[in-house]
Amino acid sequence: MPDQTPAEAVSRPRDAALGSGIGRVLLLVYGVFALSASARALVQISTHFGEAPLAYLLSAVAGLVYIAATVGLARGGPRGRLLALVSCTIELIGVLVIGTLSIVDSVAFPDDTVWSRFGSGYGYIPLVLPFIGLWWIWRRA
């Protein structure tokens, strides 16, 4: 790349390393979850919002968190890592809190969110994913 300083040339391969191995799989999974959670929320909100507004809004929040994590991981660099770190942290807190509440107070969740019952509807991937994402971010920092 023209106009690249030696420091950029050295640091760029480190950021680009996300594009191989586990980093590539992580980015793919976050991208799939960004798409699926957002699409799910859009359908739920537009077709039967009155049935479970809290659950459907939480699915939309989950979709936004997955989008932000995907963008942060794909972007790389200090700002991208910060965005991914914040997103994965929010995701972890969300899946633990919503997962617990959906079990303890099932009346408040008449329909599932992405994070209900710790992501059981998605094979518990929403529970495991933020741990892997945070591990990856800290490993790459």
Rank of each mutant, 00 (worst) to 15 (best):
R75I: 03
A68M: 05
A74C: 01
R40F: 05
I67N: 02
P78W: 01
A68K: 04
L54V: 15
H48L: 04
R40I: 02
A62G: 10
S46H: 08
L42R: 06
V71Y: 08
A55S: 15
A55V: 04
S46G: 04
L54R: 14
G63K: 13
L73M: 01
H48V: 05
Q44K: 06
I67P: 07
I45D: 12
R75S: 01
L73C: 00
L58M: 10
L73G: 03
L58V: 08
L58P: 08
A74E: 06
V43N: 07
V43H: 13
V71Q: 02
E51C: 09
P78E: 02
A55D: 13
A68L: 13
A41F: 01
H48M: 03
P78T: 09
A62C: 11
H48G: 11
L57W: 10
L58K: 11
P53Q: 07
A74N: 01
I45R: 11
A41Y: 05
S46Y: 02
E51K: 11
V65H: 10
A69P: 11
Q44W: 02
R81K: 11
Y56W: 09
L57K: 08
A55M: 07
A41T: 13
H48R: 12
R75E: 04
L57D: 02
T70W: 10
A52Q: 14
G80A: 03
A52K: 12
G77M: 03
I45H: 11
P78V: 07
V43M: 10
G77Q: 02
L54I: 15
L73A: 03
G72N: 05
A55I: 06
L42M: 08
R75V: 12
L73Y: 07
A60C: 03
L73H: 01
G50M: 12
V61P: 00
P78D: 10
G76N: 03
R40H: 00
S59K: 03
E51Y: 15
A68T: 12
E51R: 15
A60P: 00
L54T: 14
P53F: 09
L42C: 07
V61N: 01
F49R: 13
H48F: 12
E51V: 15
A52W: 13
G72W: 04
T70R: 08
G77K: 00
G63P: 05
G63A: 14
I45C: 13
P78R: 15
V65Q: 02
P78M: 05
E51N: 13
H48C: 03
T47V: 01
R40Y: 06
Y56M: 10
G76A: 03
A62E: 07
L73Q: 00
F49N: 11
A69M: 02
G77L: 02
G80L: 06
A62R: 09
L58H: 09
V61C: 15
A62P: 01
A41D: 00
G63M: 12
V71K: 09
G77H: 04
G63T: 09
V43G: 06
A41P: 07
R40S: 09
G72V: 14
L73T: 04
G72C: 00
A62L: 07
G50W: 14
R79E: 06
T70P: 04
L57Y: 10
